[in-house]
């Protein structure tokens, strides 16, 4: 810890604020990477890194949406369930004979619509977001199983170009999508009035409302965007796996996404957050899972590791917040 804080202090002098803010996270990431690379030859191979990047692409897409939402003081626990539902819906539509891209479009629209409903419940009916989205999460989790009737549904060769395609001959299409989403979300947060309004609402909702900032509209848009991106994650899942099956997405994906965003330094009560942090959080969780695999540590330790990393991140965030 002391070494870590010392390093942070040094970094603050040299690095631009966007990077120095996450110096601690970067250090942990490098440390875990170094240890894994020393113990396993497989870690730094191109195929392994590609594999990791594809695994985390879905998490990154969901986390980007959640970062925007949490910056505005919101939270959505139904993202994983929306992804699960969307991936089932795409599979069933394709099986039912729809064009694959029509199916994708419909699934995205469904995700956005669910996000909008979440937003309406939170803004107009003024239900606490935690409870509202926990309820929709449960409903959608059930609906996702109903859609695929609890069975695995193959989509055959459909969506191969998305799941296994490559851009410029090397970068997987899924990773490109994730990068585009994250960069776009980062730019939105910094350079658009919509993004800055999210900060203002998360930082002080009363002041934002009185200043004439469209609080309700911004929140509705944020929840809708969150739902849309979650559905996109679901589409990526089914494209990658070639089938919709029970247990994909859902609560475990949701927790990973929330963990990644919190590890990235976004405040749970809103008002601060960065996409750089979120991406680092996503990468960190992906690398930890991968290194546990490579080092042949019992898979049950993965959840233990996830929880531990989350706890440490939350504590350091708290300490950092307290030092101001």
């Amino acid at each position: 810890m002391t070494a870590l804080t010392a390093l942070k202090g040094q970094a603050r002098l040299a690095l631009p604020p966007g990077v120095s803010r996450h110096a601690g996270l970067l250090t942990v990431l490098l440390a875990i990477g170094t240890v894994t690379a020393l113990k396993s030859d497989a870690f730094l191979t191109g195929s392994n890194l590609l594999n990791v990047s594809q695994q985390i692409a879905v998490v990154a897409v969901l986390a980007a949406g959640l970062t925007l939402l949490m910056t505005a003081g919101g939270i959505d626990f139904s993202l994983g369930a929306i992804a699960a539902l969307a991936h089932g819906v795409v599979a069933q539509l394709i099986v039912a004979g729809f064009n694959e891209w029509t199916a994708v479009g419909l699934a995205l629209a469904l995700g956005a619509a669910i996000g909008l409903v979440n937003g309406l419940v939170v803004t107009l009916l003024k239900v606490v977001p935690f409870v509202a989205t926990l309820a929709t999460s449960t409903i959608l989790g059930g609906a996702a199983l109903l859609v695929i009737d609890g069975k695995s549904i193959s989509i055959g060769e459909h969506l191969v170009s998305l799941g296994f395609g490559e851009v410029a001959g090397a970068v997987p299409a899924l990773v490109v999508i994730a990068m585009v989403v994250c960069v776009a979300a980062g730019l939105v947060l910094r350079w658009t009035a919509f993004g800055r309004n999210a900060f203002a609402i998360g930082g002080n909702e009363n002041a934002a409302r009185l200043a004439g900032i469209p609080v309700v509209r911004t929140k509705l848009l944020l929840y809708t965007l969150g739902g849309l991106l979650a559905a996109l994650g679901g589409v990526m899942l089914v494209a990658r796996l070639g089938a919709a099956s029970p247990g994909t997405g859902g609560l475990h994906l949701e927790l990973t996404v929330v963990a990644a965003v919190v590890i990235g330094g976004t405040a749970l009560h809103g008002g601060s957050g960065t996409l750089v942090g979120t991406v680092l959080g996503v990468v960190l969780l992906g690398v930890v899972a991968n290194s546990l695999n490579l080092l042949q540590i019992n898979a049950h330790y993965q959840d233990v590791a996830l929880g531990t990393v989350l706890l440490i991140a939350a504590i350091t965030n708290h300490l950092r917040g307290g030092s101001h």
Partner: peptide, 24 residues
Amino acid sequence: LVPALSVNENLDLVRRGRRRPWLV
């Protein structure tokens, strides 16, 4: 005020609320 945001952004808050621009 929004305490966590910078002085200049707080100074711009009401103007942004009134003019509703797209970009910052």
